[in-house]
Amino acid sequence: MFHNLLVLIHHDILITLRQAYSWLTPLLFFVLVVCLFPLALGPDTETLNKIAPGIIWVAALLAILMSLGNIFRNDVHEGYLDLILLSSTPLTLLVFCKVISHWITHCLPLILISPLLGVLLNLNNTEELTLITTLLLGTPVLCLLGAIGSALIVSVRTQGLLLPILIMPLYIPVLIFSTSAMMAASLHQPLSAYFAILGAIALFTLVFAPFLTSAALRIGVNQ
């Protein structure tokens, strides 16, 4: 059983790697959006450092939202969704595997490149570490919540910007606590409370979201 799930995750990752644009475009989008801010606000390091948490987090959030539109898209076209709905493996588990592989291929690259962007915005070491930690704790939540919305509109042909509108309000707590943690880091305040809250949100979402996503898929597959 466990081995089977690993095979599924492995194949999902393989599929994404074989279509390089699908994981490269969110990554480039992330980098470009972050680079727009110094150009828009001027190169003053102090200002940039002050708003860096907001910039990086909003950019990451948007990049992930864009990638999430595709999490079930091909599965519908290929008729693969019917297959997993009718599989005897519990749908919640399959959905969970999909989200994990999506996180590995679409969020992990963002997290890996974020220290570099931190350098561009003059973050110090503590801030860099905080950034990475908040991204590690926060991005799974973004993926899990986004998957619910993506599943609901899975068969809608003209999705446009529907997914961001649906899901963005739900991202607010993660955004607030992550950026607050980074601001606290820049003020040399203790951070454990922020990480605890983010971790709690992550656990809470981990429990509920896959279940809701599988319900959403069952609804969304019939249009």
Binding site: H11, L14, I15, N74, E78, G79, Y80
Partner: peptide, 8 residues
């Protein structure tokens, strides 16, 4: 549709 993953 065939339920086949196109990139495998």
């Amino acid at each position: 549709q065939n339920g086949i993953k196109m990139h495998l």
